[in-house]
């Protein structure tokens, strides 16, 4: 990664509805943003995964059946940091305090299906902030862009 890209600031806003096809729209937009912002492939993978989990959760549980929701995702590169913010008008939900941690040591038989998505978000992102403001959930993710994430395979 050259020195020039470290000074690049770029921002993109994606507006989604609470429909199942929101995920396809979202993941394509993150990939496109990753290219435009020259983000390392590994970081794009992690960011896509974290955002898919968050938005899937909002679409699945954030709204009453039949009610229309608006989910706004802002992607930003600021210097050597990638940031993403998800703002939704669904029910109030703080994934940092309300999502249970899955039992990672349980056997196949005992392991509960589900609960992994927000665990990924917490594990993969450097920094997560939640706030409830003006009747909306705001979830902000930050990830440092490092040279070791440039996609070269170790093996």
């Amino acid at each position: 990664m050259g020195n020039g890209s470290e000074n690049m600031d770029i921002e993109q806003v994606i507006v989604l509805e609470n429909r199942p096809d929101a995920i396809v729209q979202l993941t394509q937009a993150v990939e496109t943003f990753g290219d435009a912002a020259a983000l390392p492939p590994k970081l794009v993978f992690r960011l896509t995964l974290a955002l898919e989990e968050i938005v899937t959760n909002v679409v699945s549980y954030g709204y009453q059946p039949g009610s229309k929701g608006r989910i706004e995702v802002t992607l930003r590169r600021q210097g050597d940091e990638a940031q993403a913010e998800v703002v939704d008008d669904g029910v109030q939900f703080d994934p940092l305090s309300e999502a249970p941690t899955p039992d990672l040591d349980a056997s196949v038989e005992e392991r509960r299906i589900g609960g992994l998505g927000l665990h990924f978000v917490k594990t993969l992102m450097d920094h997560i902030e939640y706030r409830w403001q003006d009747g909306r959930n705001h979830l902000k993710l930050r990830q440092r862009i490092s040279d070791k994430d440039d996609g070269h395979q170790d093996r």
């Binding site: 993941t27 896509t48 995964l49 196949v108």
Partner: peptide, 18 residues
């Protein structure tokens, strides 16, 4: 690429096979 929705299917299959 895989997310938790995909992992869930592997776990369901493993449970059913077990």
């Amino acid at each position: 690429y895989i997310s938790s929705a995909g992992l869930r299917v592997f776990l369901m299959a493993a449970k059913r096979l077990s």
